[in-house]
Design a binder for these strands. Structure first.
Lengths: 243, 243
DNA sequence: AGCGCTGATTTTGTATGCAATCTGATTGCG
DNA sequence: CGCAATCAGATTGCATACAAAATCAGCGCT
């Protein structure tokens, strides 16, 4: 996994490995990234032994990582059968977005009160990164773009000052990324960027209700761009004749 | 642990043990109940070996259970030091209640659309149980009352049809119970009961905004009855001279 | 050829063992 | 007497070993 790349990235990886000293979390994060980037397709079997050999560790730590992922809804564990990359149903997807429409405007209210110059700078950095990525073509850039978009929303959560809701949103954003990778159809992520800009503007102006409205609209926008018609198992006949 | 009681409860326990066949979850549930009932005080050390011997199992399963509890915010794990019952700060408590004020009215909206006769019967059962407990005196009854109150809110979540938010609320309710056990002062739980009745009435009438308002008021009520002035560590001088 | 069955192989579930770290008690020193 | 260093005991972190379950292949049967 990632064997063939230049070593610059690996170095970064080692740096945080040495400092954090929490190897299960590293495994968790790598798997998580791979899942939301869709380098691991839904329903992919996540064999403990295989992952263990990749990270050169025992199954013990792999199991903890997989457990964490299952709590976040990114993997599904079936007893005596193993762990698989989650394959969220359309209904699940709707629930995730409903939760985001509820939580994010609330976070915005808190964020507006606490927003300082540092935060704004961080937001602008993220927006710049998104702009950069928008120009690049290719699947990798698209993945990075989805991730960057998530970072924007997480920045909002961080500023809000409610750690409980922040943790919830972290899960929701990760699951959203998976859902988008699964059901996304157009290059919708690009229109999302302009909306992020608008949201930041409204934040700076301290207009909470406007931020809320923009967020709801933005999340709606993302959801509407998904193809959430029933598929993925169960629709055998559909799969054969509908497409 | 529970050695002195009659065996009727233990039988129930064994029944579900045999069927579920998921021993880590059983350990998790028992610890969770003990924590939110405050039979385990905050900051109590949860030794792996000790718990293992209590449940007659290896540390492996105990560790998984403790991990689950830490994800839910009910225990705190310190590296190389072990797991401890969480001791939520007042700030944390406020965040938990803020999250509930946000989520529960949203759940109510979904619940009203889906509410059927079975659900209403379930609600009434829960209310009856609460009434029953209200009459009983003693610490055990008080614990059971807090738990029953949580069940009412979880019933709302179950009916709402959003599994994602339901999972969030499950965590929030558990943490609330812990917080109430920690910071609760009066027999506030009793006034909560009447409010539950009102909420159910409004639910039956299908008046979403009224249910929402009642819920917010109810949660506010619970929170206002807490003593959330800074304490628990750090306030050494305060602890000595203020009380 | 299709189908079910049995046994070998693989994979997960749980227990145990060993090394690393922490605790806290005793000892020696200022 | 107070305080720091040290060493023994206990506890956690991680790896490994063993048991149970599932998967897969080959076989015989219809």
């Amino acid at each position: 996994m990632g064997r063939g790349m230049t070593m610059t990235l690996a170095d970064t990886h080692f740096a945080e490995w040495k400092t954090s000293e929490d190897r299960a979390v590293v495994i968790h994060d790598q798997l998580r990234d791979a899942i939301i980037d869709r380098r691991l397709a839904p329903d992919t079997k996540l064999s403990e032994a295989e992952i263990g050999s990749i990270f050169d560790t025992s199954r013990t730590l792999v199991r903890t990582a997989l457990q964490m992922l299952s709590f976040e809804g990114l993997v599904r564990v079936e007893r005596n059968r193993g762990a698989f990359v989650a394959n969220p149903s359309p209904e699940e997807a709707r629930q995730v977005f409903a939760a985001r429409r509820l939580i994010e405007p609330a976070l915005a209210i808190g964020a507006i009160e606490r927003l300082d110059a540092t935060d704004i700078a961080a937001f602008k950095d993220l927006l710049a990164k998104e702009t950069e990525l928008m120009a690049v073509r290719g699947a990798d850039a698209r993945r990075a773009e989805i991730r960057a978009s998530g970072d924007f929303h997480m920045q909002l959560a961080r500023v809000s000052g409610n750690a409980v809701l922040e943790k919830f949103l972290e899960e929701l954003v990760a699951r959203s990324s998976l859902v988008i990778a699964l059901y996304g159809q157009s290059g919708a992520s690009s229109c999302g960027h302009g909306e992020h800009q608008e949201i930041l503007d409204a934040l700076e102006q301290g207009d909470a209700s406007r931020v809320g409205a923009l967020l709801v609209h933005h999340i709606d926008h993302i959801e509407k761009d998904l193809d959430l018609r029933m598929r993925s198992s169960q629709g055998l006949k559909d799969a054969l004749f509908s497409s």
